[in-house]
Write a protein that binds this DNA or RNA. Structure first.
Length: 268
DNA sequence: AACAGCACCTGTAGGC
DNA sequence: TGCCTACAGGTGCTGT
């Protein structure tokens, strides 16, 4: 799934739909819509796209009425203007605008979710701060009491948003922090390194239009470039680019985690 | 609190 | 070529 850099890339391209008015919505897979899809189609019909923004990994389509539509791409979701032949088999929702242009929500694994929120409802569950500023990351990671592995904490959207499996591994590698280190045992030095590494790798990936491993594509159906610059994620069995030790893979909280046993030492 | 396990889905890669 | 298993950018639920 798209993590923050991938979602950010998509959101920037979605400025293309600003000002458009929704004519019809066709739902091909009911469960892509949270709640009643019939109601969703009524709620959004005739409304205008005011702006498209991002909160964590959520795409927020802000409507002229003040109501909001959120899109979460989960693992394989994407929003595209021109579906490929293959996309057509996995198209779940199609938005048609008054100017006859269209936007398709394509999602192989059907995990993605689209939801309409009335303006008076505070949008979204409890989400942590955005991770693009060092000071915010530092605040989010300081004073944690939990013994949970730092890797799990970085993936916890209530503590900090936007980081997924790829960038958690990359940030820990760049910071020299072992993924299993309990969050409560993070030293000030660790927090300092992470608070710089996280915004750095995320911004770097945004510049490269994100990481494309298999399914992620921008709205224009092209992939990102960041997969060519990974140091830890998916590198198990390969040589560490820093010290030449062999990158290892372990499971933490059910997620695979790759790290360098020499650069990321666990000394508790 | 925090973990494992499973659920949601489909495709792909690797072993035999 | 098959069949089978494991695994994949995420999140949320249940049970222990």
């Amino acid at each position: 799934m798209p993590e923050l850099p991938e979602v950010e890339t998509v959101v920037r391209e979605l400025s293309e739909i600003e000002g458009k008015t929704v004519k019809t919505t066709s739902v091909l897979w009911d469960r892509s819509i949270e709640g009643s899809s019939k109601q969703f189609q009524k709620d959004i019909k005739g409304d205008t796209i005011k702006s498209v923004t991002r909160r964590g990994k959520y795409i927020c389509i802000n409507l002229g009425s003040g109501n909001i539509v959120t899109v979460h791409l989960r693992m394989t979701g994407k929003l595209v203007f021109k579906p490929t032949e293959k996309d057509k088999n996995y198209t779940r929702v199609v938005f048609t605008f008054k100017d006859s242009s269209m936007m398709s929500f394509v999602d192989i694994r059907k995990f993605g979710k689209i939801k309409w929120w009335p303006k008076e409802e505070a949008f979204l569950p409890k989400l942590g701060p955005e991770p693009l500023l060092s000071k915010d990351v530092k605040a989010a990671l300081s004073g944690l009491r939990t013994q949970r592995p730092v890797k799990s904490v970085l993936l916890d959207q209530q503590i900090i948003v936007g980081i997924g499996n790829i960038y958690a591994d990359e940030a820990l590698f760049l910071s020299g922090v072992h993924p299993m280190l309990p969050a409560a045992k993070l030293e000030p030095e660790h927090i300092k390194k992470l608070s710089h590494a996280i915004p750095k790798i995320l911004k770097q990936s945004i510049k490269r239009m994100g990481t494309t491993l298999s399914d992620y594509r921008t709205t224009k159906n092209i992939g990102g470039e960041n997969q060519n610059y990974l140091n830890a994620y998916g590198q198990d069995g390969l040589e560490c680019k820093t010290c030449s030790a062999t990158i290892e893979k372990i499971t933490i909280g059910g997620r695979s985690s790759c790290y360098c046993p020499q650069c990321q030492v666990l000394n508790i």
